[in-house]
Design a protein around this nucleic acid. Structure first.
Length: 347
DNA sequence: TACGTTACGGTTGAC
DNA sequence: CGGTCAACCGTAACG
């Protein structure tokens, strides 16, 4: 009975209900507002198990989010999808070609060694021998032809951030300039989750599960529009890389947008009335105690403060050391020096 | 009972 | 332009 997949195909809304009665979208991150709430509650001394029950989020998820927050200072989900940064950057290809030109009989493994020796690559991003062979075969097969890489600016290389392969829209979203601007708090990740599904989904779910919640909520209607408006059709994946040009990444945004004061909204309103997940379908009063506190989050390690009212400016996190994180989850903290702020920005 | 971990089924987006 | 792949997600279950 639990964990019923709810499909409302007609409305392109779907979602599932977990064992706690919370609604989630499989494969998609929880809304940032909930993530923030989790951290807020934890900082208030509420036990993870209680947070789990209150927010109706699985304890594993709570654990994960808190652990990540403790490690990185970020409540944001990771970048979903995409590919690992290519190691065969134009520069590398050019070097390989140079080596090949200089010594047509050179072996791929020799090229590899030279790439390392010459500092073109380091041990972490040096192409494999097979990759080099492929490059030789596919891209440098005809040495008489000028390489495309000679003339192209090779934009992708810009985002080959060794620390965080996926670029964040930092540069695109000056933080200080938009305080109080209408577009709302946007906890936008590079590939922020537009949660098309979530959006419509939640609404569908909510209506499906708890029609009364809608009827009894003044602010729900507009939210509903907002959320349903965030539809995959409205912003196909064509939008820029890593969401830089993705305007309507607003699932969260809308989610928290009801007010610029997240602390006022998140605690009760956003979670009961406008929250897209039916998670908080219960009385807002259940979360009433949130309102008087937890206006800000201070990361224990970084001292970073997440201040709800000005989330878009106050939340700044260490860049998740993705690569290292994947290889060695326990060593995240070692990358503090590499941290760069990726922050909540507005769309 | 609390919580860390992980298999699983899912989404996403670069290639 | 559709398929593949590897990243991520949250849940559920296990210990």
């Amino acid at each position: 009975m639990l964990n019923i997949p709810l499909l409302v195909l007609a409305d392109q809304t779907y979602g599932e209900v977990n064992q706690l009665g919370g609604v989630f979208v499989n494969g998609r991150p929880l809304p940032n507002a909930i993530r923030i709430r989790i951290v807020e509650l934890a900082q208030l001394g509420i036990r993870p198990c209680d947070i789990s029950r209150q927010l109706r989020v699985s304890h594993g998820c709570v654990s994960k989010i808190l652990a990540r927050y403790n490690d990185t200072g970020s409540i944001l989900p990771g970048a979903i999808g995409g590919s690992k940064p290519r190691v065969t950057t134009p520069n590398v290809v050019k070097s390989i070609r140079d080596y090949k030109l200089g010594d047509p009989g050179i072996f791929a493994w020799e090229i590899r060694d030279r790439l390392l020796a010459d500092g073109v690559c380091d041990k972490y991003n040096v192409p494999s021998v097979s990759s080099i062979s492929r490059i030789l075969r596919n891209k440098i097969g005809n040495l008489s032809q000028p390489s495309q890489y000679d003339s192209k600016p090779s934009p992708p290389q810009i985002s080959y951030n060794p620390v965080y392969p996926y670029s964040y829209p930092n540069a695109m979203s000056p933080t200080g300039s938009k305080l109080g601007s209408p577009p709302a708090v946007s906890v936008s990740l590079s590939r922020a989750w537009p949660s098309v599904h979530t959006v419509s989904n939640i609404l569908g779910i909510r209506a499906f599960m708890d029609p009364a919640a809608i009827a009894g909520t003044e602010s729900y209607q507009p939210k509903m529009e907002d959320w349903t408006g965030v539809n995959r059709h409205s912003f196909p994946s064509v939008h820029g890389v890593n969401g830089i040009d993705k305007p309507p990444i607003e699932s969260d945004i809308k989610y928290t947008q009801g007010s610029s004061n997240l602390s006022a909204y998140v605690p009760a309103c956003a979670y009961s009335a406008t929250n897209q997940y039916g998670v908080y379908g219960g009385h807002a009063g259940n979360y009433g105690h949130w309102q008087s506190q937890g206006a800000s989050l201070t990361h224990p390690n970084t001292g970073t403060m997440i201040q709800s009212p000005n989330l878009h400016t106050a939340i700044s996190f260490k860049n998740p050391p993705r690569e290292a994180e994947r290889k060695s989850p326990l060593s995240k903290q070692q990358h503090e020096g590499l941290s760069a702020v990726h922050e909540l920005s507005e769309s």
